[in-house]
Structure formats: structure tokens, C-alpha cells
Nucleic acid binder design. Structure first.
Lengths: 351, 351
DNA sequence: CTGAAAGCGCTTACAG
DNA sequence: CTGAAAGCGCTTACAG
């Protein structure tokens, strides 16, 4: 023992590669190779090393490995919130794919605060994420700068635009809402209202509103100021908004209500029932998301469905392809929402 | 330059602490202290170091730091799925607390496969998580062994039992369903049915069924084999189960239906409406979770509410307390579900 | 195929 | 308060 000649330095107490090497009677290099480049080690030695590792119950220390190899096998995802199942499903899809490929996933929720998102991204970067997925483009430029300057592959999810400077995995929010609006126009509606979640720090919501606006403009229409309701994405706000809209004189009130999501639309439908109104008889209404319940309540809700888990899967696959060097940069992938035409939106009443 | 005398070894290309030290004209030790133990560095030097770090845009390399300090500032959570908002909310709460305290969160979903959960736990352990939260107790013993042998603090969430060998943050699933059953017994019901999600690999569901069973046994009752429906946790399964139950002769069929969650109960209520039946007129029914919609549909659903985000917050706080050395071991915390008595369960009809 | 040893980027016990 | 240097646990360029 030369103890005493060296500085005391705790150590983690965990079994380390060196002990496996000693037990297997090989060098540390060989142990490392037996696991990371098994082809370079003879069958017999490889077996001996693996047996020794198992016997000692060795789990490699990822920090040591990361420091030496400059690989962490960690990816990160930053979403606004897990309270919305839309993002939860995305993360679920991503997590599964990453896990299958030996990657562990860091999760950050910004609670719709771009600065918080940036802080979390930086924490992930410090911890050496090899790739990052963020929801939407609404982030401080520092976030993308940090990613680009380090050459960390990333994707923007949930939104998609051909014009985006970023690789996008998602759908065109604007086009989706234009399409929904056109569906209502085709049904003969001329007076429109919208019930929406807040668009603060939310490029997706802004795009949705823009989509409605463009379709209406093309038809020479627009939404009157008093017919645009914006508030929390709750059943209550949907309900109170519908009630407000319906206080207007019957021949002046909107016949078509485009909601920012199913939740708001369902709330509105509940309020309507209490007011003795119904869709599509008294007004038409649409949602977005196609929640499980939306097709089962009466009236069945006209809405659009996006495969969010698939977005997560595609995002993870793109990032893994870049990490593996199979491609230079993540490619954008468009996911097309499915328009579900159901009972809640019908032909406009003639007046 | 002595280049050439040393082995070539890439390097990450990132700015490192050494460069900050050089620019600030101090040793690497001082740079490290300026950030980690600022009190030990003079005001002036500290400022110089921070300026240099900012100028160089230095982000410390977490692997180097982890290796030297044996701290990673990483925590992990393993849940069955993110498709259930119950777990999503837990993770959301946890994430926020950990993030505030400088911890980054690893997320793993087992998809209800205990082996997959174990694999993910091992991956997290290798990456040096300082604490781990897992949902429920239904995990291979190796998982808890690995945690205990390394002294990694952990908590079991969503379930709670005084008898558990593990620190639990959650509620007593058995007691909750006993309570709900007693509520129905007090309303005069004697013939019970249950519509439940699968109990495979799911100790929480098993406990729920046990809770119902115990309350019924105490009243000299039990659920007949044909009145226990178990299947996927979907609106559809709730609906088809209700239909099946209601095919029985009117004076022989159950008057009280305990559902494993709101989703199943809502499905059942929808089917009832289509069959021209209603609650509480023709039967009473209860759920669990108190989804937003459950109190707004007609009939309003009698159910129980659990603050899942709070479970996540409590879990993170317990783990952080152990990490900080403020306590030896995570303490169990019971969260009491709130019984929401509403219209869907009423007095049993006299026959 | 295998080993000796340098190096990854930090922290920290020790000395001053 | 500050610095020189050892050490954390791996990987890998080099040599054989």
C-alpha cells in the first residue's frame, strides 16, 4: 500500500472499470473495448471481461465515459407544459424512440416562458445533450445561437413552415385553420367568431389566427372585434365566450365559431345546451385536437386530428440520424392534420 | 509549443475553464471557486472571473464537473405512460421544482413493462442520477436493490401505504375505493358492479379492487363474476361494459357501478344515454380522477380528485431534502383524495 | 488482438 | 484568499 503518498480523494465508492480489468486479468483498454467495440476483442477475452463485470455488478460511470469520449447519449426536449396532452404525447413518442437507441431523455417545461425555456436549454447543454427538440419557434435567439455554435442538432416541433430557418417536425398551423375556415365558408357561413387560447409567446396560436384571417379575407370577410374571444384554454372560458357571443341580436350574431382547440369548443357546446341552443341548428362550431370525447359527445365535434406521438417519433428519428452522422442536418417533416367532418358544423341557416 | 510531444486528443472544441482562468489571470481552482464557493474568493477576483467567463461564453462541462465532484445535479423519474394526464401532471410538478433547484430531470416511460422500467432506471443510474422517483411499487426487486446499494434516495409515487417498505408519496388506493364503495352502500345499494382498467403489473389497480372488495365484504356483499368488467381504459370499453351489464334482467342487474377512473365512467354514461337509461335514475355510477369535464357533463359525475401535480412537487421536495443532507431518508407523505359527491350516484331505488 | 499511458474538463485537499 | 497539482473514471491514439 502506498496510501498516504497520494492525496485523499474519496472516490464514489462504486465499482469501477479498473476493478473489472483486474478481475478479468486484462488492461482497462480491453474492458472498454469489450463493451464498446466488441469486434476488436477476442471471443474468449470478451467473455472473461463480461463475466467479471457481471460478477462485480459494474455499471460504467457515464461522467467518466462522457469526458473521455465526448459522447453522453443524452437528448433533451423542451415543451411549454405537460398539462396539455398534446405535448405529453409528443414526449411519450420521443422518449420511447430515444430509449430504444440507448439515449436517455432530459425533459424541461418552460410554462410558456421563453426565458425559462432558455435557462433549461442551457442547463441541458451544460450536461452535454447531443440533440434537442423544442416546441415551436418562439424562443430567444440565444437559444438557437447556442445550439448552432456548438453544432448540436435540433428540431422545432408541432409547427411547420417551409419558410422556417429551422428544421420543423409538425404541421402548418396556419394552413390547418385556413382549411377549417374554408370548410365553414363552403357551408355558407358569412359571420364568423373565434374562441381562442392566448397567443402570447405562442407562434402556433398566432399562425392559427392568421390562417382564419386569410381564409376570411379571401372571401371578403373578417371577424369583428367583439367576436374574437381570447382567454384561458378551459371549458369555462369556452362556455362563457359562447354565452357572450349569443347575447348579440339573433340576426347579427355569428353563425360559425372557430375554436382554437377542442376543449374550448366542448365548453362552448355545454354552455349552448344550457341556453337551449344547439349545434348545428343554431350555430356551427369547430375544434382542434380531436380529443377522445369529442367524437362521442352529442353533437359530435367537427375538428382536426394531429398524430402527436408520431411527431415525437419523427423528431427523435431525425435527431438520431444526425447524431449517427447519417445526415448533416435534421430534415423538416410535415405531418398533415386530418379534418374530421362531423355534426357540430353544418350548413348556414338562410335568413 | 510542445505540440507533437503529446498525444492528439481532439477535445470538445468548447471553451473550457482553463481558458477562463488564463483570461482572468487566475488559477483554475479560483475559477471553480468563483462559481461554486463564491465566498471563498475576493470580490474583485470573483468579478474578474465572471467577466472572463461571460466574455468567452463559457458553459461548464458537466461531465468534468460530475467526475471531479461526484455530483451530477440530475434526478430521474420513471412513469408508466405520459398518455395518462395523471402521470403527466406529476411529472410537470416535479420538473418545475427540480428545475428551480438547479436539477435537470431525466424522464423514462415504462409503458407498464416492469423490465423496461428497470432498464431505464439502470440507464439513469449509470448517468449518475442523484435521486429517482418511480410510480408505484410494482417493480423488479433489482430496481430497489440497485437504488439501495448505491444509497440513491428514491420515492414511490401515486400509491401510499403505511406498510410499504418504501417512502411513498401518494394516496391509499385501497382506502379511497373503500370509501367510495361505502358512499354507495350508504345510499342503499346492494348489487354492485365494477368497470376497471387492467390490473396487470399495476399494484394501484389491484389495491382499488381490494378496497371495493373489503367494503362490500364488511356489508356481507360481493361483486358477482359477471359484474366485474376489466379492459382498456377507454370510453369505448366503459360504454360496452355498461351495455353488457344492462342486458341482465332488470331486477337482477347491478344498481351501483364503481369505475376505475372517470374515463370509463364517462364512457358508460354515454352508452347509457343511447340506451335510454340514465343515472342516478336507473343506476348509480362513480369514477376516479375528476377530469375537468366530469363535473360539467350531465349527470355530473361522483368521483374523487387527487392533486397529482402536488404529488410531483412533494416527491421532488422530499428527494431534494435527502440530497441536501437535511434528512436521512425520504419521508412518506399521504395525499388524501377528495370525494366529490355529485349527481351520478344517488339513492338506490326500492324494488 | 492487447496494453501502457495520456488525456477528457473539472474539483478539492493541501500548502502557503 | 489563492495556486499547483492530483485525482475523478473512463476512452483511445499509439505501439507492439
Amino acid at each position: 500500500m502506498v496510501a498516504g503518498s497520494k492525496r485523499a480523494r474519496g472516490g464514489s465508492g462504486r465499482v469501477k472499470l479498473e476493478e473489472v480489468a483486474r478481475k478479468a486479468n486484462v488492461s482497462t483498454a480491453t474492458v472498454s473495448r469489450a463493451f464498446n467495440e466488441p469486434d476488436k476483442v477476442s471471443e474468449e477475452v470478451r467473455q472473461r471481461v463480461k463475466d467479471a463485470a457481471r460478477a462485480l455488478n459494474w455499471i460504467p460511470n457515464a461522467a467518466g465515459r462522457a469526458l473521455a469520449s465526448r459522447r453522453t447519449h443524452i437528448a433533451g426536449a423542451i415543451i411549454p407544459t405537460l398539462d396539455d396532452e398534446i405535448f405529453a404525447h409528443q414526449i411519450g413518442g420521443m422518449q420511447t424512440v430515444f430509449s430504444e437507441r440507448g439515449f436517455t431523455l432530459f425533459l424541461g417545461c418552460s410554462n410558456y416562458d421563453p426565458d425559462e425555456g432558455l435557462r433549461q436549454a442551457e442547463a441541458m447543454l451544460a450536461r452535454g445533450v447531443e440533440a434537442l427538440a423544442v416546441v415551436g419557434e418562439n424562443h430567444p435567439p440565444e437559444l438557437f445561437d447556442a445550439l448552432n455554435s456548438r453544432g448540436i442538432p435540433y428540431v422545432v416541433t408541432y409547427s411547420y413552415s417551409k419558410l422556417s430557418p429551422h428544421p420543423c417536425i409538425g404541421f402548418d398551423n396556419r394552413a390547418a385553420f385556413s382549411r377549417m375556415t374554408e370548410h365553414l365558408l363552403a357551408l355558407g357561413h358569412r359571420r364568423f367568431a373565434a374562441i381562442f387560447q392566448p397567443d402570447t409567446n405562442n407562434d402556433r396560436v398566432k399562425e392559427r389566427l392568421r390562417g382564419i384571417g386569410e381564409a376570411l379575407t379571401a372571401a371578403g370577410l373578417e371577424i369583428a372585434a367583439q367576436d374574437l374571444m381570447m382567454g384561458p384554454s378551459t371549458l369555462e372560458f369556452g362556455a362563457s365566450s359562447l354565452a357572450r357571443l349569443m347575447t348579440q341580436a339573433i340576426d347579427a350574431r355569428p353563425t360559425a365559431i372557430v375554436c382554437g382547440n377542442d376543449n374550448l369548443a366542448l365548453g362552448a357546446l355545454m354552455a349552448a345546451r344550457e341556453l337551449g341552443l344547439d349545434a348545428p341548428g343554431d350555430f356551427s362550431i369547430t375544434g382542434f385536437d380531436d380529443l377522445a370525447i369529442s367524437s362521442r359527445l352529442s353533437p359530435r365535434l367537427t375538428t382536426m386530428k394531429v398524430d402527436n406521438q408520431q411527431i415525437g417519433v419523427l423528431a427523435a428519428n431525425e435527431l438520431l440520424a444526425v447524431i449517427a452522422g447519417r445526415q448533416e442536418r435534421a430534415q423538416s417533416r410535415e405531418v398533415v392534420p386530418d379534418l374530421k367532418i362531423r355534426e357540430s358544423a353544418g350548413a348556414a341557416r338562410s335568413r
